[in-house]
């Protein structure tokens, strides 16, 4: 653990109104939420930098704990074995979600990299690592395209980000794709000039664009 981590942990523990336990449980809950959102929503969402950092620190601590205890396992085997089993299975669960979260994001980044690069607002949603990944991935991809077939095309057809002619070559997330949502407050949304009343706790399938803002404010939760 480096100095920054320690500082971050210290700051996290200073947040008012929470004790350490609630904070940790809350973080895992938020991770689950972020994961579900990322998987169900068509666009790329902002990276949960602080949350992921906090959880990664805790994961590292748990792994250290397991390693430390497995060395001593022979001496007081009985007492510690069950604890290790529990800790390990929880680690598995949390790590699964983090991996899935990261992969889902990478998938979207691969798919929409040209679009993401074209706007600062989108680029800001990436973490530093994700940004580096996107740049390098794109670079490799272009290299491959060029060496395999683009060099044989007439120059005027070599662009990969043409937007003219009625068809854009840049893939953009389709915000009109439907999503499953549960309303947590009453609201009215408009789809195709039709007004839909969202009643509290109702489950709906609507296009993402119509509820995008409500998802951000938390009045609607994606499922």
């Amino acid at each position: 653990m480096n100095f920054d981590d320690i500082l971050k942990e210290f700051e996290a523990s200073k947040r008012p109104g929470y004790n350490e336990d609630e904070l940790r449980a809350e973080d895992v809950r938020r991770l689950l939420d972020a994961w579900v959102k990322e998987r169900t929503v068509p666009e790329l969402l902002p990276y949960e930098q602080e949350l992921i950092d906090r959880i990664l620190i805790r994961i590292r601590k748990q792994i250290e704990l397991i390693e430390l205890n497995s060395i001593e396992l022979q001496t007081h085997e009985r007492e510690i074995k069950l604890r290790l089993v529990v800790i390990e299975s929880e680690l598995d669960r949390v790590q699964f979600i983090i991996r899935s979260y990261t992969r889902t994001r990478l998938q979207k980044i691969d798919k929409y990299s040209l679009y993401i690069r074209s706007s600062d607002k989108e680029t800001a949603k990436l973490s530093n690592n994700e940004f580096a990944y996107m740049e390098r991935h794109l670079e490799l991809l272009l290299e491959l395209y060029n060496s395999q077939f683009m060099k044989n095309l007439p120059e005027s057809l070599q662009a990969i980000d043409e937007t003219g002619g009625g068809v854009s070559m840049i893939d953009e997330p389709d915000l009109d794709r439907p999503v499953f949502v549960r309303a947590t407050a009453e609201n009215v949304v408009e789809v195709d000039d039709e007004e839909i009343e969202l009643t509290k706790d109702g489950i709906y399938v609507v296009r993402y664009r119509a509820v995008k803002d409500l998802v951000e404010t938390g009045d609607v939760r994606v499922l």
Binding site: R24, A25, I55, L65, E79, L82, R83, E90, V94
Partner: peptide, 18 residues
């Protein structure tokens, strides 16, 4: 359940459960 017979009463998990 003899979980807690060890040194600490709490299983320190990533998300804590007491």
């Amino acid at each position: 359940c003899d979980f807690s017979s060890g040194t600490s009463r709490r299983t320190g998990l990533v998300s804590t459960y007491c």
